[in-house]
């Protein structure tokens, strides 16, 4: 039953190259959410997928020594609080969710006030939440694994 950790050497090699590229693409999707299609939700799922890619290729024992579940739970809570804090910031100018920051020039990266910050907050929340779901499903001793061991 006990095989070598993770997948073969080829997969591990390629994963080391592609994970950073997937992560970079996710960050691009998040930060350009107010200019092009995408945004915090899609980019958050892409970044969660890049971490999941790592876990699948290297095996959960090796990967989860570095990536702690409690750390991701904390990140998720931080993302939610950041989103709420941005919304509360609007109260300083009048009402909840007011776009208080300077709008800037349209069609440039640093424009549209709180939307960029909100995208970052949602990205933190979605990516950390989905990845902690995946970790919880991965490290649970699945009954199917036990059944396989018993049948042996």
């Amino acid at each position: 039953m006990k095989q070598q950790q993770g997948m073969s050497l080829i997969v591990k090699r390629i994963t080391k190259i592609t994970v950073s590229l997937i992560f970079l693409f996710g960050m691009y999707i998040v930060l350009h959410g107010h200019l092009t299609p995408g945004g915090g939700f899609a980019g958050g799922v892409i970044i969660a997928l890049s971490f999941i890619h790592l876990v699948l290729a290297f095996g959960k024992e090796i990967a989860l020594q570095r990536l702690r579940e409690s750390f991701f739970s904390a990140i998720e809570s931080f993302g939610g609080l950041m989103f709420l804090g941005i919304a509360l910031l609007g109260l300083s100018g009048g009402y909840f969710f007011l776009n208080v920051l300077p709008k800037g020039v349209p069609f440039t990266l640093f424009s549209s006030g709180i939307i960029v910050l909100c995208n970052i907050a949602i990205f933190l929340k979605v990516s950390a939440g989905l990845f902690s779901i995946f970790i919880a499903l991965a490290i649970i001793r699945m009954p199917m694994d036990d059944a396989k061991e018993q049948s042996r």
């Binding site: 979605v126 989905l130 779901i133």
Partner: peptide
């Protein structure tokens, strides 16, 4: 709604497991 659907699917899978 799409992202909520994913989280709800994960919750149902957890209960089924």
């Amino acid at each position: 709604s799409i992202v909520i659907g994913l989280a709800v699917t994960a919750l149902m899978v957890a209960i089924a497991v």
